[in-house]
Design a protein around this nucleic acid. Structure first.
Lengths: 122, 122
DNA sequence: CAATCATATTCAATTCCATGTATATGATTA
DNA sequence: TAATCATATACATGGAATTGAATATGATTG
């Protein structure tokens, strides 16, 4: 946007959010984080992408301020900063007529303490 | 997206919507259309962009199915097809902490029958 | 402190998007 | 039917986003 009009400047912030959401893998990551924080290895196992690819997409979400990370031993856990983002996702799912519920049943095992302790309990 | 994962395919449709919304001028156009249909010349006068630029952005919105056009004599009027899109815009405005009300006071005059008859009434 | 672990970053190639300029379309009026 | 009106399209260029491959980081353990 070269000669930006004064009437469109107020939309720059919203545009930034839409730019980040304009990506299927990033939407999938946000859906995984809907029920709380998860480690990177979990998202990697869940989506089946290469590790560096997941990390790249997480970086986009992180640098845009949508998610935060926290280290716990070997693992890094990500969580969504502002849950209002899910109102945006819900609204677009309603608009497109989709209701996405990631197949949580599909048990995904990774080596993070959370998953290992869960697996041992069963 | 070359080797798309099966887990991200369900998000392609949402991604398409976010792609279209990822543009300040297109967001401004949708805000203008919030209160009903408007002619192209009105949006042109309102935003101050060149005619062809407005037309290009309207084409993106139209081809994505967000808006529809209708001819009335010399003018073409656009309207939003599915008002649920405003739930998306509202949600992102809440997320960014913005509440945008386009300065409707700023009376914009164009030559479409609607604007001319309004102007004559005053 | 060297090896190992999970994760992040860099770099390059390709594709996609934005936008200026020029021109086309198609309805309307004289 | 020629001129005029509002609007649309085509094309070209520059810039941004995507993504694969390779490598780096930095905490942890032995």
């Amino acid at each position: 946007m070269i000669d930006q009009d004064i009437e469109t400047k107020p939309y720059d912030l919203q545009t930034q959010v839409f730019r980040v959401l304009n990506h299927p893998a990033r939407l999938a990551l946000l859906e995984i984080l809907r029920d709380g924080e998860h480690c990177v290895c979990h998202m990697e196992a869940y989506l089946g992408f290469r590790q560096s690819y997941i990390s790249q997409q997480l970086a986009v979400l992180r640098e845009a301020g949508l998610i935060q990370d926290r280290r716990d031993g070997w693992n890094i856990f990500y969580r969504v900063v502002n849950l209002d983002i899910y109102d945006v996702l819900d609204a677009v799912q309603k608009y497109t007529g989709q209701s996405i519920n990631p197949s949580k049943e599909q048990v995904v095992s990774c080596n993070c303490p959370n998953c290992v302790s869960k697996a041992n309990r069963q």
